[in-house]
Design a protein around this nucleic acid. Structure first.
Length: 592
RNA sequence: GGCCCUGUAGUUCAAUGGAUAGAACGGAAGUUUCCUAAACUUUAAAUAUAGGUUCGAUUCCUAUCGGGGCUACCA
């Protein structure tokens, strides 16, 4: 990469000029800001060298620039502004780059894989309610991060750990049993996950009613909860489930099957998938052996009531429960077990958990416990902690029905895409299948981009009353740019045989250098596990292309070499957009 | 109370410790005999506050103030 070549020459120049070696980090190369593009393409900051050079910033930059000119054949010229050395790279270099990559459809994506695999857990839904906007963020992030790692040369295993058991599952089962009158997805026409979710809400309503009645009779909330018949029955059902009671298991299987069918439909629409699905009903007993091992090693301790804990006070945390006094597992016990399971199954180099930031503490503990137990792979656990999606009124709550449903949201986005497309009337030649595919592509593109362009760790607000934009810094804008480019390439109707060399207009150079950086952007996004890096980059590319498109003619350019250059630039721009968007899980249309 | 995350234009987002803090939406004003106007151009508008480290701080440190989360024998 040219940045590294430049750094190397700068380091050599420093040692020649000042007879001193300096840390490469002192000579970071950056893209020259637009205000000084007339001087160069890349810049070096020389302030850190002043102590060595014993010269003024300007003088230091000037001698360094001169020295680089002499040794670096790719360098064309340099300019100095205060302590900044701006280097112009020869357009020949960029010509070569373009010629070599213009027909590479995989530009920016590594296909050869190396190293141990990365396990990415994401989605991890509960089977008592449908997916909502919070899950959407999780799913999109998990999928995109997997794509990023894959594109940067890692083998990725996407796993989903489905929470299919527990008291909350019993609640919807109980409500259905008591009030459902045999309702099924078929009989009601409701999607299975929605149907089950409705009963979960119904349980909560009935329970609250009962609670209110009991409290009116003078019981405290705690007493009322303990007395509640609804709650008692739910707990009984959980005990029956754990005792493998046949009738309970049958109901559980039936309702979970409804939910899975619903989830599958949502996942499919959302475009996410998994290589391996774990079910908590099969993993919740794991981890007890690990706890036993910890007790033997003296890392964990047992309290008088029989419960098992770990003392993390010296790590700045509290004591944490790992096994209840009755010997049953908690979430942490199971997670210790499933982590071990994954380590055994895949021998991964990295274990990534895409889980909301409300569980930061949980993952700190998980990692610490495994480290203390001497698991060498504990260090490779990484909690990709993302921020909550909030409504203007605050947090979404399933039980209170204040959630933005994933399916409804997708429906709305697609409906908006349809309305907008019909209004613009550009796809009259599409048949209905093609048109539907486009609405879906654009609607989902808007939704996915909206979510992924935000830094994962930040909370984000979603206002259901203001629809997600289709103009500006949005998915459809980038998709539109792609369609525009494809339109030109179709009209050109030829295989692009760019060989160069051609001198570059500033707009051409800006665009080309931006495209050149795509592989680095992918690398950075994968390293940071941040799709937003790619999203924001693609927006810049689309904007840059549109300016180029607006300012310069392509098909009607009379100079053949220049025309081919611009077609090649268009081609590579389309490739970068398509490949980049695929990393976000977004498709791009040929026409829109 | 303790711990963690977070405060950037009216709003939603950017900016490995580097130049004059970028965009988008919304506001104001323009560009279609021209390859797709879901576009392009111009314009007003922001680093919560106070210190510190540094040649240089939106970025790092400390305090204050605001927002969120965790701190369950829940998951």
């Amino acid at each position: 990469m040219i940045e590294q070549i430049l750094t190397k020459h700068a380091l050599d120049a420093v040692s020649r000029l000042f007879n001193t070696q300096v840390e490469p980090s002192l000579l970071a190369v950056q893209r020259t800001i637009p205000a000084f593009r007339n001087q160069g393409d890349f810049s070096l900051v020389v302030f850190p060298l002043l102590k060595i050079s014993r010269k003024s910033p300007e003088e230091t930059a000037a001698v360094l620039g001169q020295a680089i000119m002499e040794s670096m054949e790719e360098a064309e010229s340099f300019g100095v502004v205060k302590g900044y050395l701006n280097i112009r790279i020869k357009s020949l270099y960029w010509n070569h780059f373009l010629a070599s990559q213009v027909r590479n459809g995989n530009f920016g994506l590594k296909h050869e894989k190396e190293g141990r695999p990365v396990v990415v857990e994401y989605s991890s839904p509960n089977t008592n309610k449908p997916l909502h906007l919070g899950h959407v963020r999780n799913n999109l992030l998990g999928y995109s991060v997997s794509q990023l790692l894959n594109a940067s040369g890692r083998n990725v295993i996407k796993v989903n750990l489905v929470n299919d058991r527990g008291i909350h599952i019993c609640k919807s089962m109980l409500a259905w049993k008591l009030f459902g009158q045999g309702e099924t997805p078929e009989s009601s026409g409701k999607k299975g996950d929605k149907l089950v979710g409705d009963y979960y809400v119904l349980f909560d309503r009935k329970f609250k009613e009962e609670l209110a009645g009991l409290m009116a009779r003078g019981l405290s909330e705690e007493q009322a909860t303990a007395e509640s018949v609804m709650m008692k029955q739910a707990r009984e059902m959980l005990l029956k489930w754990e005792a493998r009671d046949e009738e309970t298991l049958e109901l559980w299987n039936k309702m979970n099957a409804w939910v899975y069918k619903g989830f599958d439909a949502t996942y499919k629409r959302l475009g996410v998938d998994f290589d391996r699905i774990y079910y908590e009903s099969q993993t919740y007993l794991l981890g007890k052996k690990i706890v036993e091992e910890g007790l033997q090693k003296g890392i964990l301790f047992r309290k008088d009531d029989g419960s098992v804990w770990i003392d993390l006070t010296e790590n700045g945390l509290d004591e944490k429960l790992l096994l209840r006094s009755d010997g049953t597992s908690v979430y942490m016990t199971q997670d210790l077990g499933t982590a071990q399971l994954r380590a055994d199954d895949f021998n991964p180099g990295q274990l990534i958990y895409v889980v909301g930031n409300e569980q930061n503490y949980h993952f700190d503990v998980l990692k610490l416990v495994l480290q203390k137990l001497g698991r060498p792979w504990a260090d490779s656990i990484y909690h990709l902690s993302y921020g909550m999606v909030e409504l203007p009124e605050g947090k979404m709550k399933s039980r209170e029905g204040t959630v933005v449903d994933a399916d409804d949201l997708m429906d709305e986005m697609i409906a908006t895409a349809r309305a907008m497309t019909e209004e613009l009337g550009k796809i009259e030649d599409f048949n209905s299948t093609e048109a539907e595919a486009l609405y879906s592509m654009v609607g989902l593109g808007a939704l996915k981009y909206f979510i992924l362009k935000v830094d994962p760790k930040k909370n984000m607000t979603f206002n259901p009353r203001e629809s997600i934009d289709f103009n500006g810094n949005t998915g459809p804008f980038i998709q539109y740019t792609h369609a525009r480019i494809r339109s030109i390439l179709r009209k050109a109707g030829e295989e692009i045989q760019f060989t160069g060399p051609v001198s570059l207009h500033p707009k051409e150079a800006d665009l080309l250098i931006m495209l050149y950086q795509f592989p680095q952007v992918v690398g950075q996004a994968a390293g940071d596990l941040s799709p937003s890096v790619v999203a924001n980059y693609l927006f810049e590319v689309a904007r840059e292309y549109n300016q180029f498109y607006h300012e310069l003619t392509i098909l009607k350019e009379e100079d053949l070499n220049t025309r081919t250059l611009r077609l090649a630039l268009s081609q590579l721009s389309a490739t970068v957009i398509r490949n980049g968007m695929s990393l976000l899980g977004i498709d791009v249309p040929e026409k829109m």
